[in-house]
Design a binder for these strands. Structure first.
Lengths: 187, 187, 187, 187
DNA sequence: GATGAATGAGCATTCATTCAT
DNA sequence: AATGAATGAATGCTCATTCAT
């Protein structure tokens, strides 16, 4: 039931935007009654929030998966894989992601568990940077990770939602990787 | 009159966010009647769009002014000046900018195409790149300008609205310049 | 417009009680739109409150009129006139009064003006008692007025809404007067 | 079970008023499911009516107890005992009584006819009056009992819920007794 | 009997927009 | 042009009630 509602909400949100999404519409789309929506979500915003959490979790797992692939030795290889994975994930339902991510950045930590694997994307990037600290120019890992996070987020979104006309995705992808690597001074 | 209304709208928008802004409230704040608002703006969204346009225009002028300063020889010098000017411009009314840049696209279903001012900025950046083409690595000026515009926009906004804790503005500013220059391979 | 709405509200309230009264219904009954109701009354309760004020004002005027009649010399004569007037006023729209008065007592002071004539019913009763202090047994005018207020209010309501079976109004009226006079020890 | 539910309903009603009381809340407070509430009470109103009935029953028993005490010879002694007992009973849970006696009829469109307990009280008062018929002035016992019941009810409620400022309970109690005795002409 | 998830009619309230003055 | 009272569709949300388990 929760899933049915979330799926319906995702659809309505993608099609009509936040303002155009009403709880009654979501319920109708889900084939349940409004009351059932409110049984599981205290208000409209919590619905969107849940969708958001779900997406943030997915993005986190995408990055986890990429970084866990093991012997992908070079830094550039890692960055390439991350960018490719993020792009792929965002191309699935771009409309929904636009709505979702323009409210809150997708880098939000999904949960604050104690499990060491749940520290969020920012931590993962920092770990990656520390692993390759010898190869990169900026010395403050904290600040550098913040910058990279911004670059990745804004460019992946822009690439999916309003790509510069006349360039193929692989070319754009490469430009994003270049931007990150250029900043790291590790071209 | 148009200006009075826009000013009022800017105030209300900054104070109460998009959802909290009503045409009646704007009219009251402007000291005119709702009818007068509708005399000049066909609907609520056109009001907000006008504000957005105004902001984009201001940013364009800021860049124009910087690039027109003449004998600022180095590329890094230009970039530094642009970043500094953008930061300064955004620090003036951060609350309004937050609404304009974070909330507006969220509530505004049909994604407004790039405004003329945005296009203008893109052109200016391209011109700057062409002027210094010898010093930079990426060869496609069009794509490079697009990337740089993304980086500038997202990082300036992030710096103003949610700066990484523990870093001073000059440090952050420098990081943004480094990111751009790094991408250009012209560190 | 305000009056149209109040009239409609009075009708709906009398027919369906407080819980059964909806702002939309009132608007429909008044032949205006809900929006217009909210133009003049900030919320549902304020509607009921306004009706209440109106009624309290009417009751106050009824009493004013009676006591101002001048040379009605005896205390009993005054009390009789008051009871008769209150009964008459309540027999007009008993259903509405029931709803109105079971929420707040009808003795509420209508307004707290500076005008000496606007001190409320309680004050009027006290004045009457002071005028005839020689004839009555209870000595504390304040407390006595409070008791009489209670007796009048509860018995007039009861007489109109659930009269004891088998007794005519004049008989009941007389019983109320007897109760008041008996308490005053001035039978 | 029925009692658990009624107890929970009394608590919720006292704390949150009629409008703030929902069957789900009562069920939760009682530690049972809504379904179980509906097993014993066909609807929300029947719950509140049951509570009302219970209260009326308690008042009846209070009066029974007082009048059954036997050799309390004088009429005034009986009235005093009744008033004192009623006051004591109402001081126990004034908030619940306020809801039951002020809010309930306001929300409850069809005026419930006098409950059997109310009738019982009326009968008891009549018996008392008949016992002392020689001492009292009003001759119609039926009407006189009705008047006294009104006076007792309204004044005890008023004394508990909105006592006149500056008077102690014993003084107020005495005033109530005086009112009843005065009406009976047996001061 | 007991449960509680599901229902959905209904409600108070908002606000962009219109149009007679 | 300017006004602002009037509009009414639409929204988020509640809660008494049902019924399959």
């Amino acid at each position: 039931m929760v899933d049915t509602i979330l799926e319906a909400a995702a659809g309505v949100l993608a099609e009509r935007g936040y303002a155009g999404t009403s709880t009654n519409l979501v319920a109708e789309r889900a084939g349940v009654s409004v009351g059932s929506v409110y049984q599981y979500f205290p208000n409209k915003d919590s619905l969107v929030h849940a969708l958001h959490e779900r997406h943030a979790g997915q993005m986190f797992q995408v990055i986890e998966a990429v970084l866990g692939t093991g012997p992908r030795v070079t830094l550039r290889g890692h960055i390439e894989a991350i960018v490719r994975a993020l792009m792929a994930a965002h191309l699935v339902e771009p409309r929904l992601h636009r709505v979702l991510e323009q409210e809150l950045p997708f880098f939000d930590v999904p949960k604050a568990d104690d499990s060491p694997s749940d520290k969020g994307i920012l931590v993962r990037i920092r770990q990656l940077l520390e692993l390759h600290q010898a190869e990169i120019v900026p010395q403050d890992v904290q600040l550098t990770a913040w910058v990279i996070q911004r670059i990745l987020e804004s460019m992946v979104h822009a690439a999916v939602l309003e790509p510069p006309p006349g360039f193929s995705m692989p070319v754009i992808e490469r430009a994003i990787v270049d931007a990150v690597m250029g900043y790291l001074g590790a071209r």
